[in-house]
Design a protein around this nucleic acid. Sequence first.
RNA 1: GGACUCGUAGCUCAGUUGGCUAGAGCGUUGCAUUGACAUUGCAAAGGUCACAGGUUCAAGUCCUGUCGGGUCCACCA
Length: 693
Amino acid sequence: MDKTFQPSKYEKHIYEFWEKNKLFSAKVDKKKKPFSIVLPPPNANAALHWGHAMYVYEDVMIRYHKLKGYEVLWLPGADHAGIETQFVFEKHLKKEGKSRFDFEREALFKMIWEFVEENRGTMEKQLKSLGFALDWTKEKYTMDPEIVDIVYDTFEKLFKDGLVYRAERLVNYCVVDGTSFSDLEVVDLEAEKSLWYIKYPVVGGGHITVATTRPETMLGDVAVMVNPKDRRYKDLIGKKVELPFVGRKIPIIADSYVDQKFGTGAVKVTPAHDFNDYDVARRHDLPLIQVIGFDGKIQSTKTQFDGMRINAARLAVEEELKKLNLLEDVKKHKLVLKTCYKCGKTLEPLPKDQWYIKVQPLVDEAKKLVAKGKIKVHPARFKKHLVRILDEFIDWNISRQIVWGIRIPAYYCRSTKKWFVSKKTPEQCGLCGKDDFMQDEDTFDTWFSSAQWPFATLQSTGKDIYDFFYPTTVMETGYDILRAWVSRMIMIGYYATKKEPFQNIFLHGLVRDKHGQKMSKSKGNVLDPMESVEKFGADAFRAALLFGVKEGNDVTFAEERIIGMRNFANKVWNIGRFILMNEETAGKSKKSDKNIEALKKEFSKEKEQYEKHMEKYEFSKALNLVHEFLWHRFADHYLEMLKDELKNGNIEALTALKDVYSDNLKMLHPFMPFITEVIFQTFYGSDKSILNQ
RNA sequence: GGACUCGUAGCUCAGUUGGCUAGAGCGUUGCAUUGACAUUGCAAAGGUCACAGGUUCAAGUCCUGUCGGGUCCACCA
């Protein structure tokens, strides 16, 4: 053995040894209890970041249960990450002076597919270098035909059960990129903008002044609203105003949504181009009049503004209002703009037909599962967080206007104007007998396929595997995607299988940079975790993520943490080295010693404590315990006390030390798999594995 | 604005249902060491536990408020 532990000398070899000996491949073994985790699939196209490094919790659970004799499955996979990947690909195209609009749908899809395939190996290699005990023989990809097939089945079932509907709702649409974004994908930007005060002539005399940040949308106004309690406007409610330029007569309505103190207390209602106004219009049964097209130009107003771009129209409207003496004032106002995270332009709320999932029935079932404890949440404090998320869930828009993803299997019959859902293009319309279909251009929201991940991966692996390992034991992920992912997995998973997709949820914290900020690409503060792995070894890196950090709390990246764990690894290494050296010169005498007894006693206490922590998902405490015991009790105390006995050739002392040490290696193994395996093999033979004990 | 969360040694963090002279890692200081390890050992210094009230025999731990980080959500024409 070397004087110090050198990770790079062993890690690759050891991982290959594990794979070659199929130590990670799960099979159905009815004599054993199953323990399964499906890895949250990283983006196939990107390198790992620190969030992925937190999956070390999963490896800890997997290896711990493997050592306890469970049949374990940790199933890896990759996500096609629709929007994210198409975004990266488009940047790539731009460098070559091209854009997505230069290609047909099929060609673009094929190009992105190949682009992803080129990069896919990266994250897989990185997961291996972290030592993760993943069963690579069962790896899945969200774009695998078998997975897509299951996603289609689920959609079809939802459609038949009446849980999918099509509705014209407002979407955040980027008129530059030609894509709509979900609320989760927009970038908020605070800005100071103008607030225009516009006079609307009231039919029968007088006027009412509204304040607006979007004068050009007045062409699509359907009402003016005031607060019912507002005395200033009491007499005007029910009257009509004549909309300048278009001449439409629209009602003055009352809605408590209006803030009397803001602006003039009178608001124009433009349901086709404002989310709040859309809600108001639904409440009051008002029509939707779209005056901005998907090309970002004013349309169908039959005014001089038709064909103008939004900004130009805004100026023109302002100019015309001045001429008509209808512009009372222009003030400054701070507001939050929703912008496109690709091009930074302001997103346009536009009405578009989309597929929606009616979530209420799914939410009800999901809540029952959590309430009844069929799904347990660890740490417990996240339970109410999850319940609240479920309570607040609104119908889920699953249509995305991108090509990189699973295309929605919905077909529109041009003669009956009905939608059909089926895996293949229907041969003929059941209503009219014709075959004039058009497939929906949209793809599924990536989360729609991700929501099916636990059962889709297992079902596509084989019925026996699915029956044995589903519901999975634990879903481990970051608390920041409880809403986007975890809650949806519960809803869709239960809907499709009538079982909870996982029995436990374990949530880890976020990794933050030195300044306490969350690491994210948009903030540009992402560090490559792999550099630390190379520098200090995977074991030190892994342990550093857990040591002294309470489960679910955020972790601040600090190299000192890793140094501490690197030192610990070396300590463990040298204890092994010391035992081995004494074994070579071991005598035969047997002599009892009070320190031997004390050591055994203390160890059994340690072991008992360790098991408690591990079962309670208190991994940090378990690691801390082994750290404390091995270093400060075993090495600093007992080893020193028994040194003389070893010199005297007392085999009892050596055996006791070796046994306790070996057991501690197993306890440490889930946290530091490489070094513990190397030492184990040095002790017991290079064909053996600590995982088989 | 709402919900949640954090604010403990120079730095990064633990402190289980309120009960110890408040702990760990890293750093700092002093001493030690040619046989496991300087990625070491021994010893030491360092905290009015964000602030202000309150409950209690007892509060870092519970309650209220303030200030300051953070996450998610909502957002006002």
